[in-house]
């Protein structure tokens, strides 16, 4: 971990995922009709897929070789992953974000945003004692939603979902 060009925890898996994703994009790019010449619509996407893929393969080789010879037990590696890449609060924020998107369709902007803000602020704001945190989170959420709605919908005619 101390060497500057060594790998981050889980980087090998991430790079492999990127390679796979690029291959999917490449397959889709190759479906674009006609590679008659450099001006054809498929030329640019295929060229860029080639650049990304080439770069990723070099990265892949580097990460594979940068891996330490002696591997710590899985528990240690998992803990290291959690500390540097995916701490609990990030994981929960991502989950909350996805729920927010689903809520946006079901409850509309006002309801979903209020819930998202209230839950997120309420759970992240650890410095405050629970008793004052909950009402503060609710008030902040309501205030923010009200201001955003006023600004976007009334002033700029954005019809919020």
């Amino acid at each position: 971990m101390d060497r500057p060009r060594s790998s981050h925890p889980g980087e090998l898996a991430f790079t492999v995922l990127l390679v796979l994703g690029t291959l999917v994009l490449g397959r889709e790019a190759s479906r674009i009709d006609g590679l008659s010449g450099p001006s054809s619509p498929a030329f640019g996407p295929l060229a860029m897929v080639a650049v990304v893929l080439l770069g990723l393969l070099v990265e892949l080789a580097r990460v594979a070789f940068a891996r330490p010879l002696e591997r710590p037990p899985p528990v240690v590696r998992l803990r290291r992953l959690a500390a540097t890449i995916l701490p609990l609060q990030v994981l929960s924020a991502i989950a909350l974000l996805i729920l927010y998107l689903i809520g946006l369709e079901l409850l509309g902007f006002v309801g979903a945003s209020f819930l998202f803000l209230a839950i997120a602020i309420g759970s992240f704001w650890r410095e405050r004692p629970l008793r004052s945190r909950v009402p503060a989170a609710l008030a902040l959420a309501a205030g923010t939603v009200a201001v955003i709605r006023l600004l976007f919908q009334e002033l700029f005619q954005v019809l919020l979902p």
């Binding site: 946006l104 902040l140 923010t144």
Partner: peptide
């Protein structure tokens, strides 16, 4: 803890 959720909501509205 307060600012970041607001930033996320603002990003969502902005994107919309």
């Amino acid at each position: 803890a307060v600012l970041l959720p607001i930033v996320i909501v603002l990003s969502v509205v902005g994107a919309y």
